[in-house]
Every structure is written in C-alpha cells, then in structure tokens.
Amino acid sequence: MRLLTEPFQLEFMRRALLATIIVGIVAPVVGTWVVLRRMANLGDAMAHGTLAGVGVAYAAGFNVVLGALGAGVVMAVLLLALSANRRLGSEALIAVLGTAGFAAGVLIISRLDSGVELSHFLFGQLLTVGWGDLAVNAALGAGAIVVIAVLFHELRMATFDHVHAEQSGVHVELVHGVLIALLAVVVVISLRTVGTILSVTMLVTPPATARLFTRTLRAMTGWAVALGVAEGVAGLILSYHLSGGAAPAATIALVAAGVFAVAFVLTLPRRQPHHHRPLA
C-alpha cells in the first residue's frame, strides 16, 4: 500500500497523477471510435504532425498548446480535402502529412535549442505539469467527452453502416471531420503529459484491449476508460519506483502494451472457433 501512496506525497506527483487520469479518461473515449473506424494510423500521423504547430508556436513565443491545436486543425482539413484522391487513398497521404509535420517541428525546435525542449514535446514532461495545464486539459477533455456523448448514435450509424446512415440523414462526412478534430484535442491534451508520440498509446491501446473482450459499445468504452486510467496510474507509480520518475510516459506505454498482450492471449481461445455460423 505504501508503495502505491508514497509517490503522491509530492505535489508534482499529485499533479502528474491528475494529468494522467485526464488523458486516461479522454483518450480512450475518443479512441474507441478511432479503433472501430480503423483510424489508428491517422491518430498516429496526427500526433506526429502536430509537432509542426508546436515548433512554430515555440519559435514565435506563442502558447504551444494553441500551436498544436492549430496544426491539428490544419492537418484535419488537409486530410479531408485531399483524401478524395483515389489513386493514393487516404493511407499514404496520412503518412506523408504526418511525417512532414513531424520533420518540420523537429527542424524548427532543434534550431532553437539544444534538444531538451524537443524531447519534452516528444515524450511529455509529466512531472512538470502545472495547475494551469491541468485546467486547460480538463476543460478540453470534458468538451470532447460531451461531443462524443451527444454524437453517440450518429457515430455508431456512420461507423457501422455509412450507406444506411447517409440515407437516413446522418451527415457522415461531418461526423468523420468532428472525430478528426477530437483526435487533435486528444493530442493536445497529451502534449504536456505523455508527449505527442506516446499519445497514440492512450488513444489506441486501451480501446483495442477492451475490443478483445467486450460485446457492446458501452462496455467497450467503459473498459477502455478503466484500462486507460489504471494503466496510466500504474505506469506512473512504476516509473517512480523503477527510475525515480524518469520516463513515466514510456513506462505507461509499456504497461498498456503488456496488458494488451495478456488480454490478447487470454481471449485467443474465444476467438479461435471461427467456423461457419449455424443455419437458421
């Protein structure tokens, strides 16, 4: 018990805990839809690409969170506008945009400093999160969850059967655009905590794990959030004891991947008998 509570005697660890919990709730809620719509690659590219906005904001002395949000919106618009290209499809385009934004960010930031700041943006600076960051993250996160809750039925229809959804009056493209915008929000929330690169961990791994053993959307979302929070907190505590708080984001990512691996193996027998369904 002491091992669990000891790290949080320190105020910066308490702030880190709160930041982790916020990401652990919000990212899996959005990520459930990212996984179901098979957009994990897009999430990854979004996380990398926003570094361009961070770099520009950093160089210009703006708020880096706003810079990331701006880059996320630009990425979203470009992706939506260009993904109609049938020869490439959206997949290659996603990779091109993501790596280009990432490269631009690296270039700008490394021209300005020795590399300390760069690694902070890439891997987060969980232990230096301030109360102001927390307030911004909580507000953005709450907004994202409200949007998902309101659009729940639209998202489900657009994801399961977009043809029927469109015929029924669901604005399928708009729903897709909103989800991409929410992706940008998650990346921004993750910026100061797990960093841009590992934000994909919280976005994809807990929902992907929950997908293995749940049957309904509500259960999948609920389990994804429970896993996201538990893995985040466990990773944070583990990193405190293992390395005195170094690399908490990487520890969280490995814990999440470990839980996924265990769930994957445990659910293997259930998924195996994939023979023909019985006739009526």
Binding site: L36, L151, A165, R215, T216, L217, A219
Partner: peptide
C-alpha cells in the same frame, strides 16, 4: 458487406431505422 464483429446488437441495428424520423441531437 457488413462488419459482423461490430459491437451492435440486433435490436440496436433495427433501432437505427428510426433515425430518419429524428434529428442528429
């Protein structure tokens, strides 16, 4: 054509037929 592994029940699927009588919110 449909993703049978999607987490939706038969009842929920039928319910989506009612969407045309409603609004997005």
């Amino acid at each position: 054509d449909s993703d049978l592994a999607f987490p939706i029940t038969a009842g929920e699927l039928v319910l989506t037929g009612r969407r045309r009588f409603s609004a997005w919110y």
